[in-house]
Amino acid sequence: MTAFTRRDLLSAAAGAAAATSLPFNQPARAAAPPAGKQTAGWYRYKIGSIEVTVATDGVNRFKMAEDHVTNIKKDVVNAALAEVFMEKDMMTTPYNPIAINTGSKLAIIDTGTGESNYKKSNGTAGQFVTNLAAAGIDRNAVDVAIISHYHGDHMNGVLMDDNSLTYPNAEIAVPAKEHQFWMDDGEMSRAPKGRMEGNFKNVRRVFTPEVLKRVKTYEWGKELIPGVTAQGTPGHTPGHSSFVIASGSDSVYVQSDVTHVPFLFVRHPDWHAFYDQDGAMAEATRRKVYDMLVADRMRVQGFHYPFPSLAHVEKHGSGYREIPVMWNPNI
């Protein structure tokens, strides 16, 4: 077996660079211009007879706050980022809503950050509608827009940039407990300044009279459309909901924000993200759900998992580990 040293590799690189400077008899050709953009971000798979389309809403990349994980010091979080080859002090958050075609109903679960954010972020986020269209899904054909909880990255896409309805022909299905909490004027008046106060204001902004005309609340344990059942997973918010999509002998758990990014919060389920309204309850929910996923060997669709955000999970140390499902060129 040949052993290569760093000197060997550097010498080879220098030789390759020198070779490119040698004259050739053939005429020079203009270099192809760089594309400068990604292709449309969507991926499709089947759960029994149900077709699921993951259409990414893009990502958000930002400087990580000292309290991003409220019960763990930032240097420990940075060490965890280094383990997965990510930059210290920076957080990259993917957004991955899905569309579900049962044959009789076309639904989406969560709406992404919205067209306004597409413009604000120069196309880095707010891509959901654009990617749905690229996948051949007309937003006007959506029958039901299912909302998991009332954080902006899951519900702001209910509205277009001009405040018109993104899904004008859709019923908007929302968790009863979530809707009750965020639409309660008393709860709003008691909200602490900062993030919670801002969330309340954003909920009232999104739920315009036109939106409210289309709102229908759902209860946990109920089937929302054929094959899609709501699950109570509180802690992240009071009415935070997840979903089981099942058809025949196949099923997938749509976890919404049971965990945030998996490389931190799947691997460290005891870490409390500052997004979690009740950290202790969110942790208890997280462990209950992930123990079930491991025991049942059920795939999980994670909103904040890297695209296309479908994975298996296994026990790992005191937590869990996500294993991305192999890309399938067939549906």
Results as ranks from 00 to 15, higher is better:
1 M>G: 15
10 L>C: 06
14 A>S: 10
15 G>K: 10
17 A>Q: 10
18 A>R: 13
19 A>K: 13
20 T>I: 11
21 S>D: 12
23 P>R: 06
23 P>D: 05
25 N>T: 14
34 P>T: 10
34 P>N: 08
36 G>P: 05
38 Q>W: 11
40 A>S: 15
43 Y>P: 02
46 K>C: 08
50 I>E: 03
52 V>S: 05
59 V>I: 14
61 R>L: 06
66 E>N: 12
70 T>N: 02
70 T>Y: 00
71 N>F: 01
71 N>A: 03
75 D>P: 01
76 V>L: 13
79 A>K: 14
80 A>G: 11
81 L>F: 14
83 E>G: 11
87 E>V: 05
89 D>R: 06
90 M>E: 12
91 M>D: 03
91 M>T: 07
97 P>M: 06
97 P>W: 01
105 K>F: 10
113 T>S: 14
115 E>R: 02
118 Y>V: 01
121 S>E: 00
126 G>T: 08
127 Q>L: 15
134 A>K: 05
135 A>Y: 08
139 R>T: 15
142 V>G: 01
144 V>W: 00
144 V>R: 09
146 I>D: 07
147 I>T: 03
147 I>S: 01
147 I>A: 01
154 H>I: 00
164 S>I: 13
167 Y>T: 12
167 Y>D: 08
171 E>H: 02
172 I>C: 09
173 A>T: 00
174 V>W: 02
176 A>L: 10
183 M>K: 03
187 E>A: 10
188 M>Q: 15
190 R>C: 00
192 P>V: 09
192 P>C: 05
194 G>M: 11
196 M>C: 00
200 F>H: 09
203 V>T: 09
203 V>F: 15
204 R>P: 02
215 V>G: 00
216 K>N: 10
220 W>M: 09
222 K>A: 08
231 Q>K: 13
236 H>E: 12
247 S>G: 09
250 D>F: 01
250 D>G: 03
254 V>R: 01
262 P>I: 00
263 F>M: 12
265 F>C: 01
272 H>S: 07
272 H>T: 04
277 Q>P: 00
278 D>S: 06
281 M>H: 05
284 A>V: 09
288 K>F: 06
295 A>S: 14
298 M>E: 14
301 Q>W: 07
303 F>P: 05
304 H>A: 13
307 F>Y: 15
310 L>T: 07
312 H>A: 11
313 V>D: 06
314 E>K: 15
314 E>F: 07
315 K>C: 02
316 H>R: 14
318 S>D: 15
318 S>K: 15
322 E>V: 13
328 N>Q: 14
331 I>C: 11
